[in-house]
Simulated scan of single mutants.
Amino acid sequence: MTRKATRKTKPASVEGLPADWRKQAKALRRYGGETPATAIERCADDLEATLVERDETTFSLVEAARESGYTATHLGRLVRDGKIPNAGRPNAPRIARRHLPRKAPAEAPLAEEPGPRERSNTQIVQSIIQRGME
């Protein structure tokens, strides 16, 4: 008799792991696995605390600019306009990581010269001959 493989679903994100782990702990307890269930719950608690701490981390505008990809001036304007909550004091704004906007990474520009994989064998040989003569 063959067993049908069950497909585990991946958590939607790291933030979803503690809830998934608690479900696993509950299932383990149903089958008498008290010790591993307790260990998994402790891991879930630790991860949850780490995530909260990470989200509560605050940055100066300069640090936030490095982290987000936006300029410090732009981030300062967003705080001033109330679009991002100020996690600091008046005239000394700070931005919590959880409120930090993220700039989409810029796409790499197209290369003007062909890369090594785009060159023909003849071009590669000619390049080697020219470099050898230099």
Rank of each mutant, 00 (worst) to 15 (best):
T9W: 01
G32A: 10
L17Y: 13
R77E: 14
T50P: 00
T50I: 05
Q123F: 01
E63V: 00
R66D: 15
T9R: 14
L110N: 04
G16R: 12
R80E: 12
L47G: 12
T35H: 09
A65R: 06
A108P: 00
A106K: 15
E107G: 06
P85H: 07
A96T: 03
D20V: 08
S13C: 05
A25D: 09
R80H: 13
Q24N: 04
A72F: 07
N86Q: 05
E113M: 10
R98K: 15
R3K: 11
R3Y: 14
P101C: 11
L51N: 06
L47C: 05
T58K: 13
P116A: 05
G115D: 13
T122Y: 06
R30H: 11
V62G: 03
P105D: 06
K4L: 10
A19G: 09
Q24I: 13
R98D: 02
K8R: 13
T2I: 03
A37Y: 13
N121F: 03
E113L: 14
L75H: 11
A27S: 13
T35E: 15
I84A: 07
G69I: 00
E63C: 01
R98P: 03
T71F: 08
P105F: 01
E113R: 12
R22T: 08
N91L: 06
N121T: 08
A25G: 11
T50Q: 13
A106R: 14
L78H: 04
T6S: 11
L110Q: 14
A27M: 12
G16W: 03
V62H: 06
L47S: 11
R102S: 14
A19T: 14
L75P: 10
R77F: 08
R77P: 00
L75E: 08
E53V: 06
R80N: 10
P114I: 01
D81V: 00
M1P: 01
A106C: 02
P36A: 11
L17T: 09
